[in-house]
Amino acid sequence: MKPMFGVVVQPGTTRDQKKTGWRIYRPRFKQKDCIGCLDCLRSCPDGAVYQIDKKKFDSDMDACKGCGVCADLCPVDDIDMELEEQQ
C-alpha cells in the first residue's frame, strides 16, 4: 500500500538512518578469548552484534549506539569500550 493521507507509512524504512552520531564509546571485539556464549549477540538492544564465526563476533557500527551492554556482560572480558574518535 502506498503512502496515503500522511497516515500510511512504509514499513522498515528506519534502516537507512545511521546511529553513528549517538556514540561516545564504541565496542572493540578483541576476538581473542571468546567462548561463543552468545550473550553479547542476544542482549544487544540494537541488534548490532553479528556473528562471524563460532567464537568470533563484531558489531555493526551503523546500528551500534555504544551502550556498552555487550562489554559489561562478556564473561571473559573479550570486549573493550573505547572512546569514539572525535570527528
Partner: peptide, 9 residues
C-alpha cells in the same frame, strides 16, 4: 502488505 499506522509526526 505491512504498513505502519499512527506514527508520530
Amino acid at each position: 502488505d505491512p504498513i505502519t499506522l499512527g506514527s508520530m509526526a
